[in-house]
Computed example of a mutant assay.
Amino acid sequence: MAVSIAAGSIGVYSGLKKIETFVFNGGVCSRSFGNDGVGKCRRICSRRLSSGAVSILRASSTTAIEDGSSSETDKVPTPKVIIDQDSDPDATIVEITFGDRLGALLDTMRALTNLGLNVVKANVFLDSSGKHNKFAITKADTGRKVDDPELLEAIRLTIINNLLEYHPESSAQLAMGIAFGMEPPKYQIDVDIATHINIYDDGPDRSLLYVESADRPGLLVDLVKIITDISVAVESGEFDTEGLLAKAKFHVSYRGKAISKPLQLVLANSLRYYLRRPSTEDASF
């Protein structure tokens, strides 16, 4: 079963400066997908969202199930948030899945418009894995898809914060629960074990980079920064938040060509080194 909703702008905030002020309590650097410059990012976007970032009501019970048919003793499903830059040439696709519990469709759309975005289309569909909310979003000021990693990370954290507000029982299921939720995860993932990096050729002009690691706030921004700091361009990709893990797929290139084997090794080692050392002082940039 599927439901489609078209939506326009609802009192949006446009421009990165307003997004910076509205969402984060710290600085935001400018770096876009496809930009292979090496400008330095002064701060990592790893701070808690401000309390005003999402205008919603807290659920009255820890289950917050739409049909009320489940109880607190049910097994809590693994929350998933997918940011897809590949499947639509004109919009960024965001998909949220949380079993049959995720029902805050309109509030999630409103939270996204508060980031200076237009929700141009929304779909709700059911399958064996549960209910999926899928949004096609564009920047309100340009009408184009989102290509800025800081804004993409703000979208991800806003959605997760919205999820935690409506479903506090998911807090222990998400790495973000330690920062945003009521209950931190019951265990921590071993970063050395969880981190996997693979690079494959995807034709003569680009390569596919796969990264899987323990999730944390600011991870999407950090990954793009590490990649572009060695002059590798990020053209597009997909970033999945799945419980305590983050899984990223990036189309990358070097000077318009697929990445050579030696550069693949440099890229993989750089990412692996950084991911195993998640705490980096601002002064090192």
Rank of each mutant, 00 (worst) to 15 (best):
I5E: 05
S9Q: 09
T21N: 14
T21L: 14
S30L: 13
F33T: 02
N35L: 06
V38N: 03
R42Y: 10
I44A: 11
R47I: 08
R47D: 13
G52D: 09
A53Y: 04
S55R: 14
S55A: 12
S55D: 13
A59W: 03
S60V: 12
S71D: 09
I82N: 06
D86S: 13
L106G: 02
L112M: 15
N114G: 14
G116Y: 03
G116A: 03
N118G: 04
S128Q: 15
K131R: 15
K134W: 03
F135K: 04
A136C: 08
A140I: 05
D141Y: 02
G143E: 12
K145C: 08
A154H: 05
A154I: 08
I155F: 04
R156G: 05
R156P: 05
T158M: 09
I159K: 05
I160V: 13
N161H: 08
N162A: 12
P168R: 05
S170T: 10
L174D: 02
I178E: 15
P185F: 06
K186I: 07
K186Y: 11
D190Q: 11
V191T: 13
D192Y: 14
I193P: 02
A194E: 14
G203T: 06
S207I: 00
S207L: 00
L208K: 12
R216Y: 11
L219T: 03
L220H: 06
V221I: 06
K225A: 02
I226W: 02
I230D: 00
S231D: 10
V232M: 04
K249V: 15
F250S: 00
Y254K: 12
G256T: 01
A268H: 00
S270H: 02
S270E: 07
Y273A: 08
A283S: 13
F285V: 15
